[in-house]
Simulated assay, not measured.
Amino acid sequence: MAEFHDLAELALNREGQSWGNLGYWKSETEYSDACRALAILLGEQAGLDRQSVLFDAGFGCGDQLLLWLDHFRVARVRGVNLSYSQTAYARTKLVEAGFEDSATAIVQGDINDPGIWRAATGTDRPSHVLALDCAYHFPSRLEFIAQARRHLAPAGRIALTDFMLSDHHRTGSVTHWLLRWMLKRSHIAEANIVHPSRYLDQLRQAGFDEVRIVDISKHVIPGFAHFIRTFRVAGKAGWAGWAGWLKYAVTSRFLQWAYRRSILRYCLVSATKAR
């Protein structure tokens, strides 16, 4: 059975890269560079350093794991990813880069499964839990936040990039019905997409404080949509196969529409485990 999250993103990257996020396009023009920029932004917001014990929730094909290890020099990485193919790819990538211990510390599974957290963290209590461009795909972001709170070390931090409803969007509108249809097609639980005020409340109720939400939509959504259009014009779409290309094309058009109509916003989120 085909996976929704697979290796199709390899087609969008330059050779040797396997990023799979929407990218941060403030100054970048190439997909791999924009994806790396978004990861660096998240790592900086989280406050990663050499003492960090990092749990990566949804590590994709492993490029971000190498970034945490090489760029931020974190002490250790752990992680869970739903995709079998991506997890296998990430393990190979870590081994080839000389991080064999890290390759054995990442597992495949459902992020909402408490047993998976125990299997991934072992005796470690992570100082940081990160979710780079993936939390909206989790079966329940609320349960993910609860698990993060439960497993984080005292004063540990959670950091995400995530979609939210615009403050101007009305949930009873016609556009909201179109949004609900597209979310279902994109394997996104409707309950995961809420207004910023509700997102803030959910983090606080889960036991986090020092919550910061920064709207970075203008440097993410238009840039990704432009890249996909350029990618198609350049005649490279065949690399991803028809199914893969269709997913990117539909996603970029939908996100551009939702951004221009003030329906969705893409935000950088961080918070600290309350005492």
Rank of each mutant, 00 (worst) to 15 (best):
M1V: 06
P114G: 11
E30Y: 09
A191L: 08
D162L: 01
S217N: 02
A237V: 11
A131S: 12
P222I: 03
S252G: 04
T230H: 15
N192A: 04
A131M: 14
T175H: 11
G241Y: 09
R185G: 09
Y248H: 09
R73T: 11
H219Y: 11
G43V: 00
A146L: 12
Y24K: 00
S262E: 13
E3A: 04
W242T: 05
R73P: 05
M182H: 15
A34V: 00
R180P: 04
A97D: 09
H176P: 01
A131E: 06
S252T: 01
A240I: 00
G60N: 05
M182A: 13
R204S: 08
F55P: 03
Y136D: 01
A225N: 00
L246A: 12
A189G: 09
I188G: 02
A148Q: 02
G244E: 06
W19N: 01
L132I: 09
N192F: 01
L22P: 01
E100C: 10
R261I: 05
F138S: 03
A39Y: 02
H151A: 02
Y84A: 15
G79F: 02
F4V: 11
H226M: 14
L246K: 13
R73V: 06
D133A: 01
L255R: 00
V233A: 13
L69F: 07
V220P: 02
I188T: 04
D49Y: 12
G223C: 07
D167F: 05
G235D: 09
A148S: 06
A258E: 01
L10D: 07
G23H: 01
E210Q: 14
Q45K: 15
C35Y: 06
A88T: 10
L48V: 07
G238E: 11
H128S: 05
R180I: 08
D124M: 07
A159N: 01
